[in-house]
Design a protein around this nucleic acid. Structure first.
Lengths: 265, 265
DNA sequence: CACCGTTGTATCTATGACGATACAACGGAG
DNA sequence: CTCCGTTGTATCGTCATAGATACAACGGTG
C-alpha cells in the first residue's frame, strides 16, 4: 500500500476530533457545549446542572479559557434572579470558529480524496511543483501550525527539491469540464489540468463521486490509467455535462487547493 | 459582530489541534511521534528513550491504540539484537491519515475564509440552497461526524428550510475568471457564480489573497458591496489575468466546496 | 430587614495517564 | 552453555483534571 504511486480515491479519511488551541489552552467540544449551555440557561450554574457536571469546575474551566482567549462570559452576581451569565461577542465568536473548524473536519472525513505520491521538482515560495505519475502538479506546502503534544509531524514546514511528498487533492476541489468544450486556460485561475476518462460514478442522493482515470505522462503504460482522481459533482452537473463511464473529460483544480504532505520513507 | 450578513475575509481560523478518533481512542501527534520513532529506531525501547518517555508506558499506549485501530506495530522479542519492532502496513497507513488530517487543519488555519450569514431556502439531499446578501448560494451540509466529548456542535446533522446558517467558503476553493472572457456555464461543474470587482490584493510570496467586492442582489445598496469574498490566487495567475483593484471579475466555486454551518441565534 | 439564586473560593477525594523501577520471558550470537 | 537487548508485565508514586461539598459575597425582591 505504500509502494505504488497511485492510491486512488479513498473512501474517507476517518473520524477525527478537532480543537482550537491558543496559548496552550485547548478549546474542544466539551467547552463548546459548556458555552452553548451557558447561552441557553443564562447562568453557569444552570448550564452545569444541565450538562450534569460540577458547577465549580465549570467556573474554573471558564476562567482558564478566558485567560487564553479573553473574556468569553459576562458574569454578574446578585440582583434579579440572583445574578446570571451571558456570552460576550468574543464568546460567540469562538463558538463560530469552533463550528467552522468542525465543519471542515467533518468535510475531510466525508469527502473522498486523491493521494498521489511524487517528488518535489521545484519550490517557489509557498508553491511547489511535484512530479507524479500523471505529470507535474503544483500545490501549496507549509503552514504546518501543528503544535500539539508530539514532535513535528512529517518533517516540519520545510520542503526541499527532491523530497518525497504526497499530493492531496480533495474531491470537492476538482472541477470537471467537458473535453470537447475546452476553456481558454488564460481566462481562469485554475492551474492544474489533466485529461482523462470517466471510469466510474458513485451515486449519492444529489451529490456523486466521479472517478476519472488519468493516463501517465511518460509512455510507460500506454492504455493503462496511472491514477484515478475523484471529483465531487452534483447530480445536476453530471446530467448537464452528460457524464457517463468512458466519456473523455478535462479535469482541473487550483494549485492553492492542493496540499503537499511530507512523506518520509 | 454577530449581526451583519457580511463578515468578509477572515485572516485565519486560528490554530487548532486534530486527532483521529476511533472507538473512543484518540490518535494524536504524540502517538504519531511514537510510531515514527519506532519506525526510525526499529524498537519500542529505542523509540521511548529517543523521545525521553517511559518504555513501559509506550508499550501500553501501543496496546491501547491497537485495540482500537488494529495491529500497528509488529513486535518480536528475542533473536538478533534481542528483538525489535516494525510498523505494519496499517501502522504506516494511520500515520498517513494523520498527516493528511494535519495538512487539512494547517490549511484551514492558513487559508482565509469567507463567511456569509443566510437562511436555508431549499434542501435537496446533501445539498442546500441558502439565501444570502449576495443571492442564492448552494452548498453541502451534514456529515457532522464530530463525536468528541461534548454534545452535538451546532444542532446536529439535520437542517431544515428556514434555518439560519453560516456559509463557509474557503479562499482556496474560489476561482477567479476574467469578466470579459466568460466561460460557458454548461461546460463546467462549478455551480456558484458571482460578478464583482477586485477591491484589494494582499500579496504573498507566490500566492496572494484577492478580495472581491460583490454587490447585493436585491437593489438595497446600489453601489455598495454586500460582501467581500476572498480568493487565493497564485501570483502567476494574477499576472496572467492582469488583475488590479477595480477590475471587474467573475468568481466561481463549486457547491461541493461550500460548507454550511448551523448557526443558532 | 430577611430571602433567594447566583457568582466566587477553598478543600477533599477519585480517577486516569504517565514516569520510574523491577523482574520474567524470549531467542539468536558468541 | 552464557550473554545480550528486546519484549512482556506488574507495582508504586506523581501529576493534572474533574467531581463533591461547603461557605462567603453579592444585590435585587419582597
Amino acid at each position: 500500500m505504500e509502494d505504488s504511486a497511485q492510491r486512488g480515491p479513498d473512501a474517507a479519511a476517518g473520524r477525527g476530533r478537532a480543537a482550537l488551541i491558543e496559548d496552550g489552552v485547548e478549546f474542544d467540544g466539551r467547552d463548546a457545549a459548556l458555552l452553548r449551555a451557558v447561552d441557553a440557561a443564562g447562568s453557569v450554574a444552570g448550564a452545569a446542572s444541565e450538562l450534569g457536571r460540577s458547577r465549580a469546575r465549570a467556573l474554573s474551566r471558564i476562567d482558564a479559557l478566558e485567560e487564553a482567549y479573553g473574556t468569553l462570559v459576562e458574569r454578574r452576581r446578585g440582583g434579579e434572579g440572583g445574578g446570571g451569565s451571558r456570552l460576550t461577542a468574543s464568546g460567540r465568536g469562538i463558538l463560530g470558529r469552533y463550528d467552522r473548524l468542525q465543519a471542515v473536519l467533518a468535510a475531510t472525513a466525508t469527502v473522498p480524496e486523491t493521494v498521489l505520491d511524487g517528488a518535489v521538482t521545484a519550490i517557489d515560495g509557498e508553491l511547489a511543483v511535484v512530479d507524479t505519475a500523471v505529470g507535474e502538479v503544483s500545490g501549496l506546502h507549509g503552514g504546518t501550525g501543528s503544535d500539539d503534544g508530539g514532535d513535528e509531524s512529517g518533517g516540519g514546514s520545510d520542503l526541499a527539491v527532491g523530497d518525497a511528498v504526497q499530493v492531496r487533492i480533495g474531491a470537492d476541489a476538482v472541477t470537471v469540464n467537458d473535453a470537447a468544450n475546452v476553456v481558454d486556460p488564460d481566462a481562469t485561475s485554475a492551474r492544474n489540468r489533466l485529461a482523462g476518462r470517466v471510469s466510474g460514478i458513485d451515486p449519492g442522493e444529489t451529490v456523486s463521486t466521479v472517478r476519472i482515470a488519468v493516463e501517465a505522462t511518460d509512455g510507460s503504460a500506454p492504455g493503462d490509467a496511472a491514477a484515478e482522481v475523484a471529483a465531487l459533482i452534483t447530480a445536476e452537473s453530471i446530467e448537464r455535462l452528460g457524464l457517463a463511464p468512458g466519456d473523455p473529460v478535462s479535469i482541473r483544480w487550483k494549485a492553492t487547493a492542493t496540499r503537499l504532505v511530507p512523506h518520509a520513507e
